[in-house]
Structures are given as structure tokens and as C-alpha cells.
Amino acid sequence: YHADPSLVSFLTGLGCPNCIEYFTSQGLQSIYHLQNLTIEDLGALKIPEQYRMTIWRGLQDLK
């Protein structure tokens, strides 16, 4: 799967570019796929713990 530029820029902007593959490997290719994820969902996606809160907060800021 290839990540949408919106996803790449979002995660890169948060300092988490190495997390892109965790999302794309589950078929979550764009920022729209991420918008309703919970902190528990990020854990289920195996996002490293040190990035989960950062990503979750970033998603809240998009709403």
C-alpha cells in the first residue's frame, strides 16, 4: 500500500514518519481513514507507545 501525501505530511509533521507503515500495512492510506481512531485503536495497530498520544492529539486537532 502507498500512503497518501496527506498521511505522510501529517505523520512527518508530528515527528512520526516511521509510523507510516503501521497504518498503510492495515490499509489505512489517508488521513481520512485515521480521523475516527481512538487511542485504543492506535494500540491495536501496534503503534509504538511513545507515539500514540502524539498521533492521537494530532488527530483531535484535525477535528
Rank of each mutant, 00 (worst) to 15 (best):
G13L: 06
I20R: 06
V8S: 11
Y51E: 07
P17Y: 12
E21N: 09
T38D: 04
Q60T: 10
S25H: 07
S30A: 08
I20H: 08
D61W: 06
S6Y: 04
I39M: 05
L62H: 11
R57D: 11
M53N: 11
Q26I: 05
C16A: 05
G58Y: 01
L62C: 06
T38W: 02
K46Y: 03
L11A: 01
T24E: 06
T54Y: 04
E40M: 06
V8A: 14
H33V: 08
L28F: 15
Q26S: 10
I55L: 07
C19M: 13
Q29S: 13
E40G: 13
I31P: 09
A44Y: 10
Q29M: 12
G27Q: 08
R52D: 02
P5S: 14
Q29W: 05
Q26V: 09
Q50N: 11
Q29K: 13
Y32K: 15
A3D: 14
I47N: 02
G13F: 05
R57Y: 10
Y22S: 06
A44T: 09
L45W: 03
G43A: 06
N18C: 06
P5E: 15
I31A: 11
R52E: 07
C16K: 03
T12L: 05
R52G: 06
E21T: 08
K46C: 07
D4G: 04
L11I: 13
P17A: 07
L42G: 01
C16M: 11
Y22F: 11
Y22W: 03
G43V: 10
Q35G: 06
G58V: 01
G27K: 07
E40D: 08
Y32L: 14
P48K: 04
S25Q: 13
Q50A: 14
D61N: 09
H2Q: 15
T38A: 10
Y22D: 06
T12I: 09
T12N: 14
L45V: 10
L62T: 08
P17T: 12
Y22R: 09
S6F: 07
Y1L: 14
I20M: 11
K63P: 02
Y32W: 11
I31Y: 05
G13D: 13
P17H: 09
F10D: 00
L45R: 04
L14T: 03
N18A: 13
S9V: 03
R52I: 15
L42T: 02
G43N: 10
L59A: 08
Q29V: 10
R57A: 08
T54I: 12
Q60D: 10
S6V: 09
L7G: 00
T54Q: 12
R52T: 11
L45F: 10
E21M: 05
Y1N: 13
D41Q: 14
Y1I: 15
P5M: 15
G43Q: 13
I20S: 08
P48E: 08
Q26P: 04
G58D: 02
S6W: 04
R52K: 09
V8H: 10
K46H: 10
S9I: 03
K63W: 09
A44E: 15
L14W: 02
R57I: 04
G58C: 13
S6M: 09
D41P: 00
T54H: 13
Q35S: 13
E21Q: 13
N18K: 05
R57S: 06
E40A: 11
I47V: 13
Y32Q: 13
L28H: 14
W56V: 08
L7W: 01
S6H: 07
K63E: 14
Q60E: 14
T54V: 14
E40Y: 04
W56S: 11
L37D: 01
T24Y: 04
L37V: 05
D61L: 07
Q35N: 15
L42E: 01
L45Y: 13
L7A: 03
Y32V: 15
G58I: 01
K46M: 05
Q26C: 08
C16P: 00
E21A: 08
D61Q: 06
S9Y: 04
K63S: 11
D61M: 10
I47G: 00
Y1T: 14
A44N: 08
I31Q: 12
I47Y: 01
G58H: 06
L7M: 10
Q35F: 05
D41L: 02
Y22L: 11
L37I: 08
E40L: 11
G58K: 11
N18E: 12
W56E: 09
I55E: 01
L14N: 01
L14R: 03
I55H: 00
S6R: 11
Y1R: 05
A3N: 12
I39N: 09
T24D: 04
I47W: 00
N18T: 07
Y32R: 13
G43K: 14
L59E: 00
L62W: 13
A3R: 15
F23V: 01
H33D: 10
L62V: 10
F10C: 01
P48W: 00
L59S: 03
G43S: 10
D61E: 08
K63Y: 15
R57G: 10
G58S: 06
F10L: 03
C19S: 07
R52W: 07
V8R: 15
Q26M: 04
H2P: 11
T54E: 08
V8Y: 10
P5A: 14
I39T: 05
L28T: 04
C16L: 07
N18P: 03
T24P: 02
D61C: 03
Y1M: 15
K46E: 06
Q26N: 14
L62E: 10
S9G: 14
L59N: 01
Q60P: 03
V8K: 15
F23A: 00
F10E: 00
Q35Y: 12
L34Q: 02
F10Q: 01
E49C: 08
N36Y: 04
A44G: 14
G27P: 03
G27A: 03
S6P: 05
R57L: 08
P48F: 00
L7P: 01
L7D: 01
L45H: 02
P48L: 00
G43W: 05
L28A: 06
D41I: 00
T12S: 08
Q35M: 08
L7H: 00
A44L: 13
P5I: 15
T54C: 06
K46N: 11
S30L: 02
Y1E: 11
Y22E: 06
T38M: 06
Q29P: 11
I55S: 01
T12P: 00
P5F: 13
Q35I: 05
Q50S: 13
I31L: 12
S30F: 02
Y22V: 07
L62D: 14
A3L: 15
S6A: 13
G13T: 10
A3M: 15
F10P: 01
E49M: 15
E40S: 09
M53L: 12
A44R: 15
L59P: 00
H2C: 15
L62G: 09
